[in-house]
Design a binder for these strands. Structure first.
Length: 423
RNA sequence: GGAGAGGUGCUCGAGUGGUUGAAGAGGUACGCCUGGAAAGCGUAUAUACGGUGUGGAAUCGUAUCGAGAGUUCGAAUCUCUUCCUCUCCGCCA
């Protein structure tokens, strides 16, 4: 969330900038500002009353020590009223703070100045693109047919065991998964990321820390008996490592990578583009996360985008990078680049990565701060990106590389696959 | 799952109702000392919010001793709830 201080001190600017995200913030910002004034005055009242109370208590203690029991009893009587006031102010303050917090989580992050205007995905700008569009044989088929032909993925079996959206990878299909995961992890490590193996279920505090809760509760699988959530991305557990942490400036940037299975309920997204591997309830992904100094977070964003680009290039897929417009960006992001690869048989661009700078929006919730040489504590900037999500990469690899002899394995993957062709 | 012990500052560790935001030690930072270093000496070393205030120097107040609630004029210290850790037993990959 945005910091209360920033909102109250720059309320006009905040309202203007939020417009780019198609968010009309005038009313809610006004409510925040109003309640903040109330918060401050209530806090002052509470502090003053508590202060009096503390003073009086000390006096009573002193009187008792001196054996002046009568005077102590008289003093005690005076505390009753104060005590009541403290209680009233305290409850009032808590109520105000709770309401303020409820308002704050409804306000999205401010888009960076370079984020283009726009309302929908069609307004995103193509930043750059590369790779060679494949020329497919006349009888080319989409990946779900190829998966069946070479017995790589069994969607029906997944339905039997779990339900739609839980495919079973078999044989060379399973091996391809493992090859991609290892390729992505090794590449990330070589790029300076520390490999992490996080838990796949998280508590509510973690879900709240990265913003999945409370707004996106319905999108996560919830184990109610233990009140734990299946992670929708490794971003959640990895970023929460740094919840309630004050880092030393010298530790920045922190670069972590993690493979995890990802679980998404995808409630309400049935019917559209869900065939094959395009949209799943469980999928595999390698994530990269950075915690960075605010002055350098856009350098890091750039670095991360360039890094992801090397991955799609090594996989020899046609790719393009989109600079998301204000209306298509995530709630918590200040700037996002999406990566898409072309899936030739479906003749569609598939999103395979989303790289974002959250600036201090996420860090404010997480209370992830750093202390510099000036001894001042301030919020870090957090960034993350997929590097990469597997299913759509697999879809594009299968479709684009289909030949009469089988599926050609890109050079970079051959050592991981142990074969040049899937047949 | 059963029985017991415990959760205090960057770390260790004292503290069982009254100037305890918290002894002591270690670590770290700065200063002194030294040709340099060690030792030694001195100083500093949490966070959040609020008030006064300045070139975001200071200074005061409030809250925080796992978390939440309670008892009390007053709680790190007592009570309850909850989470977590450790030991023993049971079960098990």
């Amino acid at each position: 969330m945005l910091t209360l201080k920033y909102i109250t001190e720059n309320s006009e600017e905040v309202i203007v900038r939020l417009k780019k995200k198609n968010f009309d913030g005038a009313t809610i910002i006004a409510q925040v500002v109003e309640r903040d004034v109330l918060r401050k005055s209530t806090q002052t009242q509470l502090d003053n009353t508590s202060s009096e109370m503390n003073k009086l208590s000390k006096e009573i203690g002193l009187l008792f020590k001196q054996g002046k029991h009568a005077e102590a009893s008289t003093a005690k009587e005076r505390t009753a009223e104060l005590k009541e006031s403290v209680k009233v102010f305290d409850e009032k303050l808590s109520a105000i703070e709770q309401k303020l917090n409820e308002l704050l989580v409804l306000i999205p992050n401010l888009p960076h100045a370079s984020v283009p205007e726009g309302k929908h995905a069609e307004d995103n700008l193509v930043e750059r693109s590369g790779g060679v569009m494949p020329t497919l044989p006349a009888d080319a088929v989409p990946h779900w047919d190829l998966a069946k032909k070479y017995d790589l993925i069994d969607f029906e079996l997944g339905v039997k065991i779990s339900g739609a959206g839980f495919p079973v990878y078999k044989g060379k299909g399973a091996r391809l998964q493992r090859a991609l995961i290892n390729f992505f992890l090794d590449s990330a490590r070589e790029a300076g990321y520390l490999e992490i193996q996080p838990p796949y279920v998280v508590n509510a505090a973690s879900g709240y820390g990265t913003g999945q809760l409370p707004d996106k509760e319905g999108q996560m699988y919830h184990c109610t008996i233990d009140d734990l959530y299946l992670i929708p991305t490794a971003e959640v557990p990895v970023t929460n490592i740094y919840r309630d942490v004050i880092l030393d400036e010298k530790e920045l940037p922190i670069k972590n990578t993690a493979y995890s299975a990802c679980f998404r309920r995808e409630a309400g997204s049935y019917g559209k583009d869900v065939r094959g591997l395009n949209r799943l309830h469980q999928f595999d992904k390698v994530e990269i996360v950075q915690i960075q100094h605010p002055d350098k977070s856009y350098e890091s964003l750039n670095e991360m985008v360039n890094y992801v680009q090397t991955l799609v290039e090594k996989l020899e897929l046609p790719w393009r990078i989109l600079r998301l417009c204000g209306g298509d960006m995530g709630f918590t992001s200040a700037m996002t680049f999406d990566f898409e690869v072309y899936s030739a048989a479906q003749q569609r661009w598939l999103e395979v990565s989303s790289v974002s700078n959250f600036e201090s929006y996420q860090a404010n919730r997480l209370k992830c701060r750093f202390k510099g040489s000036d001894k001042k504590t301030q919020l870090c900037h957090t960034l993350n990106g997929s590097a990469l999500a597997l299913p759509r990469i697999v879809a594009a690899l299968l479709e684009n590389n289909q030949t009469p002899e089988g599926i050609r394995v890109p050079k970079a993957l051959i050592p991981y696959m142990g074969m040049e062709i899937i047949d």
